[in-house]
């Protein structure tokens, strides 16, 4: 028990240092950093404008009102923002494999998956998280749900969002692990983005039966933003709640196994 606590403490410390280093690295180029923050902010504004335009024509989107849909959008943005802000190195894995620069991380006396995941975080994406939280608060306030109900559902929501983060992380890790074979794997980035971005709107818009089954099992997009939003708005749904927990565990376990398997096939680059 004590050993686990010590290990955990070390993990947190390394994570903190890597976040600091990422931030300091960005701040070394002030204007670039500023522009990146503004860029991230504008990107999000565009999404919000898009939502507004859609709701200018319709009252509801597959049963979701504007404010409800905004909760889904904000939830997705929080998850996406957190992924970039904490695990940005994962996105660049294929490049680092091709150049062989990952070698020096792999020899360090820490879990390679952990180190590779947290090695770099993009600080400008905290802007994404912060903006998303503002949108989230705005949507909640305009939803007309009693505060007591919101607070109660919020606890479930936070757990579901944690699961969503784990699911997105695991999908990313699995896709990125293919880089060990493909080496040049920009395609995986595109695929990864395509897949996760589909979850930024209520998944009910994918009305086809087969789509529904796929998006709640194989690629559980529904559980990334839609399910947390659903439970926050409509209250607890035990089936969805436990499905989300189970999926998070299954995905995390599989991604871990797959990563370890892929690592064995690593062929590195020459000097």
């Amino acid at each position: 028990m004590k050993l686990t606590a010590v290990k955990l403490k070390k993990c947190v410390k390394i994570w903190r240092l890597s976040l600091y280093n990422s931030l300091m690295q960005r701040m070394a180029y002030r204007f670039n950093f500023l522009l990146m923050c503004v860029g991230v902010f504008l990107q999000m504004i565009l999404t919000l404008i898009f939502i507004n335009v859609i709701f200018g024509f319709i009252d509801n989107l597959s049963g979701w009102t504007r404010e409800q849909a905004l909760i889904v959008v904000a939830s997705y943005m929080i998850i996406e923002g957190l992924m970039w802000a904490t695990c940005a190195y994962l996105a660049g894995i294929s490049r680092n494999i091709r150049m062989g620069t990952m070698d020096l991380i792999l020899i360090k006396p820490m879990d390679a998956q952990y180190l590779v995941s947290i090695w770099r975080g993009d600080p400008e994406d905290w802007v994404r998280v912060a903006t998303a939280l503002l949108v989230f608060i705005y949507a909640i306030v305009n939803l007309d749900i009693p505060l007591a109900v919101v607070l109660k559902n919020l606890i479930y929501y936070i757990i579901l969002m944690f699961n969503a983060y784990v699911i997105v992380y695991s999908i990313t890790l699995i896709l990125k692990s293919f880089s060990f074979w493909f080496v040049e794997a920009t395609s995986l980035n595109l695929f990864n983005q395509a897949v996760t971005r589909m979850s930024q709107y209520p998944t009910d818009i994918f009305a086809h039966k087969i789509a529904k089954i796929i998006f709640s099992t194989v690629i559980p997009l529904a559980f990334i933003a839609t399910v947390p939003a659903k439970i926050l708005i409509g209250g607890m749904n035990l089936y969805l709640f436990f499905s989300s927990c189970a999926l998070a565990i299954i995905f995390f376990y599989s991604s871990r196994k797959f990563w370890l398997f892929a690592l064995k096939h690593y062929s590195s680059a020459s000097s």
Partner: peptide, 9 residues
């Protein structure tokens, strides 16, 4: 030919 140091720090 490879470095482990953070380039911009």
């Amino acid at each position: 030919q490879k470095n482990q140091l953070w380039w911009d720090l």
